[in-house]
Write a protein that binds this DNA or RNA. Structure first.
Lengths: 155, 155
DNA sequence: GAAGATATGTCAGACTACTGACATGAGTCA
DNA sequence: TGACTCATGTCAGTAGTCTGACATATCTTC
């Protein structure tokens, strides 16, 4: 039999292709964000706050696909650099709603324009229908992955 | 005007969706690889070596989307643990062709089966035509990203 | 009201991957 | 032959993210 009968064929694996494509996107984004002094998570955090002001640290972590511990470290740096503000006392529960400062909005605007160029280049070869289809297929793959896997069958 | 006129709309951004989906895949793979004592890069390296024996450290790095420095550190650990072997002297140039040991092949086989389950779950909701289309679209996006971006126009 | 489950914010330590730098070997070209 | 360019392997230091752990606040549930 072939050498990878029960395994993964890298030539045709959608998982490998997905990783390859997202790696290319990550590299392209790092290339344009580095001159602005920002990492991808740094930018993602500002972008999320621009579109949904008042998000908590944990919500930002989920939206940027890192742990809340990592987001906490990042937010401390962003606060120190005057890009975001958080109240000293929680308004309700333990949640500290975060807001962009003027400097944060300015930095986000510059980065957002640069990232938009990257995304446009990525999708430049796809027409509107193909872009919609790609979004559809990716969404369905993501939803399938988030479903509970083959766990312990018995309750 | 709207708050993100010249930027990215996270609700419809293909870049964000791509990151979200690959993050879900990464999490799912880590979940099944952790009980085996392997990271994703660790597994990817063994999988690559199983399908293309004799790859060099730099080639493995490119195939797993990390730097050759990171791959070097990993290979030293894999060699110490008896999963791969490298000749002490380069056969030609500086290249050290890497091979799996029996233990490495065994570990790769176990991991490959687990990862295959994850990939099957990811694509379980897609028929053959949709899977082919997804591969097509991802490939074209990746190719567009790897093209040289808007650099200095003059030579 | 008390007990448990869940979610959040935070601190500390460890790990992974990265950038920067250097030496070495191979190929190119004048 | 010699200079130049490029790719590889490696070492050292740094940065970003992770896991583990704890305290606190809210919401159920009895």
């Amino acid at each position: 039999m072939s050498q990878s009968r029960a395994g993964i064929d890298l030539e045709t694996s959608l998982g490998y292709l997905l990783k390859e494509t997202s790696s290319a996107l990550r590299t392209a984004m790092e290339t344009v964000l580095r001159p602005l002094g920002m990492t991808i998570t740094h930018y993602s955090c500002l972008e999320l706050l621009a579109q949904r002001p008042g998000l908590s640290s944990s919500e930002l972590a989920r939206g940027t696909f890192v742990t809340r511990q990592s987001m906490n470290v990042l937010l401390q740096a962003l606060e120190r650099d005057g890009l975001v503000t958080r109240p000293e006392q929680p308004a309700a529960g333990r949640v500290l709603p975060t807001e962009l400062t003027a400097a944060g909005r300015a930095q986000r605007a510059a980065a957002s324009a640069a990232v938009r160029e990257v995304e446009l280049r990525m999708t430049s070869g796809l027409d509107a229908a193909e872009q919609a289809q790609l979004g559809q297929l990716l969404s369905r793959c993501g939803a399938a992955l988030r479903e509970p896997g083959p766990e312990s069958p018995q309750p």
